Computed example of a mutant assay.
Amino acid sequence: MLVNLSQVLSIAEQESIAIPAFNVYNLETALGVAHAAEALYAPVIFQVYSRLFTNNLAQYLAPSILKLIEDLPVPCAFHLDHGASMAEVQKALRSGASGIMIDASKWELDENIRLTKEVVTLCSSVGVPVEGELGHVGTTKDAVQAEYTKVDEAVWYVQETGVAALAVMIGTAHGRYLQAPKLDIKRLSEIANATRIPIVLHGGSGIPDDQIRQAITSGVRKVNFGTDVCYSFLNSVRSTSEDIVGVDLFMKEPTAAVEAFAREKITLLRTKL
């Protein structure tokens, strides 16, 4: 069943867990996530990266995601990930997204607030909650990490924008880590306590399990997984027998690989310290 971002995150808050947000790119990755959610009777968030709305591929993927969510017996959200501009936000809303992330974190604080507030105003008119980002979460390829999110700026940002969830920079990055990251759990806890809204952890792929559990205990209610969804799918594609010619049959193993990965992360995010 389709719910909005705030509704699914309220479940996480009530149970002191985190909801996994899986980036999906085609029917098979979406199916794998759906099968895992159904098997474990667990709420999840289906995310589509901004690029797929920029190049209009999402208009073909979105109906499949919405149908999968409609048929699931648990509440799930359909979310735009790292919305690059108002154009992608509008496309996502037209495609049925029940959550929107606008990423204006590369700008200075005042401009980030201005752009985020515009998106919150638009989305509020159709009842869709917004996730913002303060403290730019870059990639594992970056030579230098951005400065960690400051507590006082986080409070100001949340008050000024009205976002429903906040992605912060506390030591994570997008992509595959060359070495395990060390999260600033103290900073995370301070931000969560000061802002009193769900905190989002980006760059979830490759973070050690113990640190993810600590992050959840400290206020994280949504954890994003993108890179490892791709690897679970692609590694299986590369190892599937070339003798299987029917594409629907060929895709069974890659879909099952995504399901196995999703099951693992759902279980992790529901396991308390």
Rank of each mutant, 00 (worst) to 15 (best):
C123E: 04
P129L: 07
L57R: 15
A256W: 00
K186P: 08
L115K: 07
A77E: 03
F250H: 03
R187S: 13
V200K: 01
L9W: 01
Q179K: 03
L273M: 15
E13A: 15
F53E: 07
A87W: 11
D184E: 04
N224H: 06
L166R: 07
S50H: 08
N4T: 14
S16W: 02
G219P: 00
L2K: 10
E160Q: 09
L93A: 12
T116E: 00
F46S: 11
I266F: 07
V163Y: 00
I11L: 15
G135E: 01
G83K: 02
A37T: 01
T121N: 15
T29C: 09
T140L: 01
D228A: 00
V24A: 09
T172H: 05
S85R: 11
A164Q: 15
A164V: 15
G219D: 03
R94I: 02
L5A: 15
M1N: 08
Y41F: 09
E108R: 04
I266K: 01
P43F: 04
L249I: 13
K252M: 10
P63D: 04
E153W: 04
A154V: 08
I102H: 14
L166S: 06
S16I: 11
A143R: 13
E15Y: 00
D103H: 07
T195W: 02
I102G: 03
S6H: 03
S85Y: 06
L268T: 12
S125G: 06
E38P: 04
A39Q: 12
A37L: 01
T121Q: 14
G127S: 00
V155N: 06
I11K: 06
P208K: 00
L178T: 15
Q214N: 08
K67L: 08
L31Q: 09
H79F: 00
I65H: 00
Q14R: 14
D209V: 02
S64G: 15
A87I: 11
G226L: 04
G206F: 06
L52S: 10
Y60F: 13
R114L: 09
R213N: 00
R94D: 13
K265A: 01
P181H: 00
S64N: 14
N193F: 03
T195M: 10
E15V: 03
E190A: 10
L61F: 01
A143D: 13
V128H: 10
A84C: 06
V48W: 09
A18N: 06
V44Q: 03
